[in-house]
């Protein structure tokens, strides 16, 4: 079971003078249960790529396979709704899609359009809200527009989670949140991942990707420039700097230390591990008067 992108090319405004290859021959396989991070500059094609995964955009060339089925074939196009139930997509600033009078109804919009029974809808809404630490009784009858920014975002994401997707795709889920909100959200995503959900997350924060993703791709000009585990990808700091995405803060620190002659590993992304590594390196140097 997997999401597969096979030789996908996407051309914006084909035939016009503004023709633009937003994606060029992209190949990618996301296995079930994986956490994939997508990084890249603005305009590198990240958002275009993820919109292909649930059929919002149709590739100019190539195929998208969800659990082995080509989603752009005629028979599959008719079942787009079911596909979108399996592949949940959360856009950037999802709080702009809220429209219902109450939080409960807004979250229920997705499940309702799938034609579920009212009983099941209610259960799903309640379950999702609890998952996101939104008190059901307290919030259900509130208007989504009177909530705080972070709460709005939670409700919007709940609207996608309530469809109980197998694959969850998030486009910069933490953009515009305060540090605490960011942390809370990332923990939530990590928890969903632990519960078995496949996660694809677009992010500008290398720190977040290094910390949570198991695999990552780096995009530039509609192509995948680097891919692999964060350890593998972040071992190419020069290329990453050229692409303009850089490396995580901790990696930067370790690289600087190495430059100054300390014997440290540079493939660690956890604060505690890095701390230990630096302390060891420092103790090795004890007695050395050069610094």
């Amino acid at each position: 079971m997997s999401l597969e992108v096979k030789h996908v090319t996407y051309i914006y405004q084909k035939g016009s003078p503004a023709e633009n290859h937003a994606l060029q021959d992209i190949c990618l396989k996301i296995d079930e249960g994986e956490f994939l991070g997508i990084v890249g500059h603005t305009g590198s094609g990240k958002s275009t790529l993820i919109q292909h995964l649930n059929g919002l955009l149709k590739p100019s060339e190539g195929e998208i396979l969800v659990d082995g089925v080509d989603i752009n074939q005629k028979e599959s196009r008719a079942k787009l709704k079911e596909l979108r139930m399996q592949v949940g997509l959360v856009f950037q600033y999802p709080e702009y899609q809220l429209f219902e009078e109450t939080v409960e109804n807004d979250i229920a919009f997705g499940p309702r359009s799938l034609g579920l029974s009212e009983q099941e809808i209610k259960e799903r809404v309640q379950h999702t809200m609890e998952l996101l630490n939104l008190d059901y009784e307290n919030f259900r009858n509130k208007s989504p527009f009177e909530l705080s920014g972070g709460e709005k975002r939670k409700v919007a994401i709940a609207g996608v989670l309530a469809m109980q997707p197998k694959y969850l795709i998030l486009d910069e889920p933490t953009a515009g949140l305060d540090p605490r909100g960011r942390q809370e959200f990332l923990e939530l995503i990590a928890m969903l991942h632990r519960q078995g959900m496949t996660i694809v997350m677009v992010s500008h924060s290398m720190d977040d990707i290094a910390r949570y993703a198991q695999k990552m791709i780096v995009m530039e000009h509609g192509q995948i420039k680097l891919s692999g585990t964060p350890q593998e990808v972040f071992s190419h700091p020069v290329e990453l700097e050229q692409i303009g995405v850089g490396v995580p803060t901790l990696t930067k620190l370790l690289l600087r230390l190495k430059e100054r002659g300390f014997h440290v590993r540079t493939d660690l992304f956890n604060v505690n591990e890095v701390k230990k590594e630096i302390l060891t390196a420092l103790s090795e140097r004890k007695g050395d008067t050069t610094c």
Binding site: Q97, L114, M163
Partner: peptide, 30 residues
């Protein structure tokens, strides 16, 4: 917004006139 609502299962293209008008609400409010 159309894309975001379509990702939540909204359908802007099928149905009769009344259904289509109703389908516009998730688009127009935001």
């Amino acid at each position: 917004i159309m894309k975001a609502q379509a990702a939540r299962g909204a359908d802007f293209e099928s149905g009769n006139l009344v259904q289509r008008a109703k389908a516009m609400i998730p688009l127009l409010v935001p």
